[in-house]
Structure formats: C-alpha cells, structure tokens
C-alpha cells in the first residue's frame, strides 16, 4: 500500500562525472531504467523503500483477511475478497519492480520474515470490528493514495509504472471503505457507535503513516533530490487531513482531536500533536499486533513450502522431458 522508514544509503566512491550526469538526467525528469548506471546509494534506497512498500501490501492483507469469512453480507464479502486480492497483486507488482534492481524475491522474503525489513506501522493495529474494514479503506487506503500518487512520477521507471497501476486500483479501496462507514453512520445507534469507534482508533495511526515530521526526517532531502519523493511528509499529512475532515463531517462522525480546527489564515486545518513515541514503538516491533503479523507470514511461508518444492520438481521434470 505504501512504505515508510527511508534511510540514507551512504554510497562509496563513485566517479564524479557519472554522478553529475545521473543527477542531470533526474533534473531533466528523465526516467532511470533497470540497466542504466545509477549510484549505489540510489539503488540501495530504492531497494529499501520499494521492498518495504511491497511488504506493506502483503502484510496489509492480514488485518482485512480476518474479516472475509465474517463479512455481514455476500456483497461485502465479494468486495473484501477482491480488495485483499488486489493487495496481493500490488505486492507482486512492486516485488517484480524491485527485482529489476538486482535483489531476489527470496532475499526480500527473508528480510521480511527476519524482521530486517520493515512494513507500514499501520498494519500492526488490530481490527476487532467490522467498522474497521470501513476505517481502513477510507483512512488507510486514503492516506496510501496521498503517498502513492506522487510516486507515479518517481524517477525510477519500474517503480513509477507499478504505482500507476496501483493508484488506479486503490481508488476503489478507499470508496468501498467510505461506503461501509456511510452505511454504518446512517444506521442504528449501535452501528453509528461502531463507525465512530473505528475512526477513533484508526485516525492517529493513519496520520502516522506519512512518517516522521519533516524536522525529524533526516533522509527526505536526498530522496527529494533524486525525485523518488516529491512532497514532504508534513505536506502530505496536511493534505490528507484537509481532504478527510469534511468527509467525516458529512457522515456526522467526529475526528478524535480536540485541537482540530480550520485556520482561515493558513487555509488548512490545525491539528493536535501526534504521539511519536507510539509510532517509534510500533516501528520497533512493539505495536499491538507486530508479533501476530510476522507469525502469520511465517506460518503461511512454512505451509507453502511443499507447494514451492512441488513447483520446482515439476519445472525440473518439464526440462528433463524436453
């Protein structure tokens, strides 16, 4: 769905001329393609960001997959199934784009399962209620879209192209979430309470998805220079808040932030302080569901081993018979 936690990859000694020519291509809005020369640090930064993005799509299936068998109607079940299938597809598009940088799929899987590679902090929150499916689609996919639309113009061709596909599909995800929230918000008192409760739990974690505040984000400048990143974390977060508040008001739901108010002068909403300690803890692996999520991935990986083995033996047999 999207990634966070970029770090600077410090490159070694590379010829000044090549580096300059590379930056010039970027400045001219040329796309970089897999076999083109690129600084090692650019390659590393992309591998980190893209693999974490792919991991987020894959792990992101878990909080929702939980509700497929519990969806309230057949219609909702079919929609949720399609959405979760999309997340798997998004993960595969980005894995395939990341492999063009020279890292294998197996190595990326290893890094996810060992905890070396991160994924979006948002997926470490539990989804105890059906309304959470609404809040995730509306807020989490909504925040992801804010992040991903600029990535469609990222300087690395395969990444940008996979983002174009993903953004097209993601828009259905957000709308189906808002649709769930709309039905609940206009339903019985108990249903409206469910919707409000889900908003209360997912609002702040959704704001954290944009990553640390610009003043604490040490790695943004290089990514901006390389045009991997186009807007700062704080700018995107503000854009998300400005777009989402009226949507909540429309449903008669209350954003759980007592400091939230329209600032006429700025032309934006002012909002309260984000609990960055919570964000850091979740990133570190101490969120409510970090252990369950990784355990579920590990279990799926282990239980799929015989399938991978069978496929390999089948491939071998096919070659032998040729």
């Amino acid at each position: 769905m999207y990634s966070q936690g970029l770090q600077d990859a410090k490159g070694g000694q590379e010829p000044e001329g090549l580096l300059k020519a590379f930056q010039k291509r970027i400045d001219n809005e040329e796309k970089i393609e897999p076999r083109d020369w690129m600084p090692e640090a650019y390659r590393k930064t992309l591998i980190r960001q893209m693999s974490q993005h792919a991991h987020s799509e894959i792990v992101g299936q878990l909080p929702e997959g939980n509700w497929i068998t519990r969806a309230p109607t057949l219609k909702r079940k079919m929609i949720l199934l399609a959405k979760v299938q999309d997340e798997a597809g998004h993960g595969l598009y980005i894995y395939s784009a990341t492999e063009t940088l020279g890292i294998s799929r197996d190595e990326m899987t290893r890094q996810l399962l060992s905890g070396e590679a991160k994924y979006s902090s948002i997926f470490n929150y539990p989804t105890p209620s059906w309304a959470d499916m609404g809040a995730i689609g509306w807020l989490v996919d909504g925040a992801a879209i804010m992040n991903q639309v600029p990535l469609c113009r990222a300087s690395y061709g395969p990444y940008a192209r996979s983002m174009v596909r993903i953004c097209k599909e993601e828009s259905f995800h957000q709308r189906q979430g808002y649709d769930i929230m709309t039905v609940l918000a206009r339903g019985s008192r108990a249903q409206k309470k469910m919707a409000q409760d889900a908003l209360n739990r997912f609002w702040w974690p959704a704001l954290m998805m944009f990553g640390p505040s610009d003043k604490d984000s040490t790695h943004s400048a290089q990514s901006m220079q390389w045009k991997i990143k186009r807007f700062s974390n704080d700018d995107l977060r503000q854009k998300f808040i400005d777009a989402t508040v009226p949507q909540a008001e429309h449903l008669g739901l209350t954003i759980p932030d007592k400091d939230l108010k329209w600032n006429e002068e700025r032309g934006h909403y002012d909002f309260g302080e984000i609990d960055w300690q919570e964000f850091i803890q979740v990133i570190k692996g101490n969120g409510p569901c970090n252990k369950q999520r990784l355990a579920a991935r590990q279990k799926a990986h282990d239980e799929g081993e015989w399938v991978r083995k069978a496929a390999e033996i089948y491939q071998q047999n096919q070659q032998d018979t040729v």
Partner: peptide, 24 residues
C-alpha cells in the same frame, strides 16, 4: 510489457499473469 513474475513453466506463468495483471 507490463511486468514480470515467477513460474515453474509457461503455462503456470500464463495463469499467474491472468490473475496478477488482468483483474480488471
């Protein structure tokens, strides 16, 4: 060209491509 994927043989690649790249 739309992307790539892993498969044991061309038939499996076709089936996976159908699911990954033509859902809409």
């Amino acid at each position: 060209h739309v992307g790539s994927l892993h498969a044991a043989d061309p038939q499996m690649a076709l089936q996976n491509a159908r699911d990954v790249y033509t859902r809409r």
